[in-house]
Design a protein around this nucleic acid. Sequence first.
DNA 1: ATAGTTTATGCAATCGATTCCGTTAACTAT
DNA 2: ATAGTTAACGGAATCGATTGCATAAACTAT
Lengths: 343, 343
Amino acid sequence: MNQKKEVTIYDIARELNYSPSTISRALNDHKSISKKTIKVIKKAALEMGYRPNSLAASLRNNRSNTIGILISRINRPFMSTLISGIEETARKAGFNVIISQSNDSYENEVDNSKVLYDSRVGGLIVSLAMETRNIEHFQQFRDQGIPIVFVDRVPKTFSSYKVVIDNYTAGYNATKHLIDQGCRRIAHFAGAQRRNIYEDRKKGYLDALSEYGLPIDKDLIIHAKTLSFEEGEKATNKLLDLPHPPDGIFSANDTAAVSAIICAKKRGINIPEDLAIIGFNDDPIASIVDPPLSTVTHPAAKMGKIAAQRILEHDQKNADNNLSEVTVLSTEIIVRASSKRIK
Amino acid sequence: MNQKKEVTIYDIARELNYSPSTISRALNDHKSISKKTIKVIKKAALEMGYRPNSLAASLRNNRSNTIGILISRINRPFMSTLISGIEETARKAGFNVIISQSNDSYENEVDNSKVLYDSRVGGLIVSLAMETRNIEHFQQFRDQGIPIVFVDRVPKTFSSYKVVIDNYTAGYNATKHLIDQGCRRIAHFAGAQRRNIYEDRKKGYLDALSEYGLPIDKDLIIHAKTLSFEEGEKATNKLLDLPHPPDGIFSANDTAAVSAIICAKKRGINIPEDLAIIGFNDDPIASIVDPPLSTVTHPAAKMGKIAAQRILEHDQKNADNNLSEVTVLSTEIIVRASSKRIK
DNA sequence: ATAGTTTATGCAATCGATTCCGTTAACTAT
DNA sequence: ATAGTTAACGGAATCGATTGCATAAACTAT
């Protein structure tokens, strides 16, 4: 038995002949405790090695100083940067951050949401799994007045805080950029259309083509489940095997775009002369690949910061207030060598 | 006021005319409750929408089903994969994962360790900040019998669970590989020597040189604080400006190695013919850069899994048992074009 | 000087689950 | 049939902090 007994506010109370209430209030700088007493109590707490028990406080308040994160995968540049932004903001406010990953499975998402609920998180930040169609599992949080912030991959029908980018405009601009560079047969690597981000990017692509009088060729639109490196490779080969191969590709993510660059190079295609390519996200690999990949920025850290702020703010305000604020962040096109045909 | 009242075991008890003790035991499949009763209670719990309050249970047990992670930065490929491995393993066992990043600052590490302690985490997984010299802040966990697992960047003097790779051998083998490829003037990008991983890699490098009768040239050893892309670029330029530039570089991470490839290429150096390069970690950028970077694997996911397992196991065993088990994982050299001179 | 107010603090219930220690009833062995 | 077990369940304290409602003292105003 080597576990030292932990010091509680009762121990301090006994030591100083105050009541536990006073100790609690003093440690929280409650205004009804005199400054002198506060000083004395804090000093004693420090000396006695007192460490607050967050669990007890959370139980009493029925709310923990914890933000739950529910995302598909942690080890993706966008996601880990998003988390980093959340963590940084949350920690400054004394909040903990619990992470859970669904691996894009609906079932995992539901299970994880339950566990986070049981942990009485003070707020929830969610980026939907690829699979998810039904979002009833978030209702329990709303019933308890626990704020939810959806980021990036958001549901259409659930009214809540949302932090997103304008995927439509980004898709439109990326496509327009390729058109401006002289591309006339532009392919698109599209993601799962169930998710807003991929649906909107595709819409932007389609509208840009239409607007500039370019025909829409279904053979040039490749739907991939995960836009992985392998899928990108396969898609690129398929496109290049076409009788009339494309002269441009707008990929809904960087991974597939990079694989397209590498694959096309292997086949002796000149980039960007024969084939101009633009991706999405500005992952680290985008600036490393040769030629460097043009892409669309995705402000992950900022999204995380704002999402966390929504939850922290909510803590302050009245619970019923303004639960459905939508924040749209701007993106930029970064033009690199993979699409720069016009000098 | 729209917050639905939450259902507790007391509500179920009242409803079924059982005592709360029985409800609690039934929900936990306690053996002294009849199977029939368990079935009845679980059914009622489900119907009534009961959700356990983890906070209450944790308070009572003075230990939460939570693993705290204390690392430098989340958004690095190695780290986010490590976290992913931890999360996956922990979640299967019903544990939550709280993350905190120190940004390599000692103060942040200490602060975060306190917050995690106050949250009564059931275990702690740590990769030390670059700055950290003093490790007293971990003593509080040991005093309470809370298991600590150090991963990758571990302290030398603190006896605890550890999960590491054999950095010395990896550094030795990476250097030997370059020697085998005909390199005779091999430079080294070394990280902060305070951390075991960089110190050991450098030792391996030095011993390999000695063993093969190659002189050790201090000009060829560059110490960088963070081995960032910029530092790598600067170091490469410095090396290439030398009267006798090196014909090989062993970088203690991939980021700096990739920047070396890009920088050297810009200067018209042929890789690997004029300069062979090998990195460390096998980050995604390693296989994307042109030519692809040879590197040393770093089993991040496996490390995370094992670290989490240590904590989960500890929960089962007697607390005083075997607290200082060290696990050494094996690494492999991946030879890619950046160092392959001999066909 | 008296009533009203402010300041500083204490009392005790509360959050929800867990568990030690009974107790009762049914069952088993001799 | 009686003592001894076992099975199934209840009572009540407990974990540690918070907070609404007192209360006592000191102070202010008239």
